[in-house]
């Protein structure tokens, strides 16, 4: 297998006196789903914001396909092939499916921002991309507000892939959804994986979801990596243990009993 698609080396991020990330090494390979797990405040969000160009790292280096990169804006990151699907999805509920799909990257004829939108072509591409990922949108002109949460996730994922994402960062894609819609999103992730060539970083709280789809795991606690491994290497018990930030569930049981 060739080298990792994206790699970080000793990534440190400080906000004033607060150290959010304290030397993160991470390797993500193409065609894999890489679960990034950890409790609230473990640094997951800061890590992905650094990877997606929102925060510049204080120290350390990010490599994309072996080349060192310095992102100054989210645009830089997406140009380098890192597509981030945020928890809030970066979707506008009052805009149509097509207008969301092409938001900021509209197809137009004519100069500058005052060029005319190629609405028909954008509708067609949106429809095709959505079908490819498993949702048949009957009317690309419908407002996002009329779509289910799972469909919105899928739209955001399809959009990132269409615009050339090689690394797909999914920030808690299942957390705000109902059971059935969670499954829909997991299925979407597997479909994307099957296409090959794309690496998925899957941030989640949910160990069951991560075990269902992930090939490789990294656990964060207090801004550091406290465990990593492939699915084969880690047992369910390890995952649960590491999820809790290294605290023993048994300790918790004792503490609870003592209350």
């Amino acid at each position: 297998m060739s080298g990792p698609l994206i790699r970080t080396e000793g990534l440190v991020k400080r906000f004033g006196p607060f150290t959010a990330l304290n030397g993160i090494d991470l390797e993500v390979h193409a065609g894999e789903i890489h679960a990034l797990l950890g409790d609230n405040g473990a640094g997951k969000s800061t890590l992905i914001k650094t990877l997606s160009g929102i925060h510049p790292p204080t120290e350390g280096q990010i490599y994309v396909e072996g080349r060192p990169v310095n992102f100054r804006s989210p645009r830089d990151a997406s140009d380098a092939g890192i597509g981030t699907v945020y928890q809030d999805l970066a979707i506008n509920p009052l805009l149509s499916v097509t207008r969301n799909f092409f938001m900021g990257r509209e197809l137009r004829t004519g100069p500058g921002p005052f060029g005319m939108l190629k609405m028909d072509e954008m509708d067609r591409i949106t429809h095709e991309e959505m079908v490819k990922i498993g949702i048949n949108v009957s009317d690309p002109g419908q407002l996002i507000g009329t779509m289910s949460g799972g469909q919105r996730q899928t739209l955001a994922i399809a959009r990132a892939i269409h615009f050339g994402a090689k690394v797909l960062i999914l920030d808690e894609p299942t957390s705000a959804l109902g059971q059935k819609q969670q499954m829909e999103v997991l299925k979407t992730m597997m479909r994307v994986k099957k296409r090959g060539g794309i690496a998925i970083i899957f941030i989640t709280h949910n160990e069951i979801h991560s075990q269902l789809v992930a090939d490789r795991f990294t656990f964060l606690a207090l801004g550091e990596v406290i465990g990593r491994g492939t699915k084969a290497e880690l047992e369910g018990e390890d995952i649960r243990h590491l999820m809790a930030g290294g605290h023993e569930i048994r300790d918790l049981e004792l503490e609870l009993a003592a209350v």
């Binding site: 809030d88 970066a90 207008r99 938001m103 137009r108 921002p113």
Partner: peptide, 24 residues
């Protein structure tokens, strides 16, 4: 209704964070 600038105006007002994250 017909130009890229229009889509940017709608996107900016709907959710500024989303629009910014998409490069508007």
């Amino acid at each position: 209704s017909r130009t890229q600038a229009g889509n940017w105006i709608y996107a900016t007002g709907d959710s500024q964070a989303s629009a910014r994250a998409n490069g508007v």
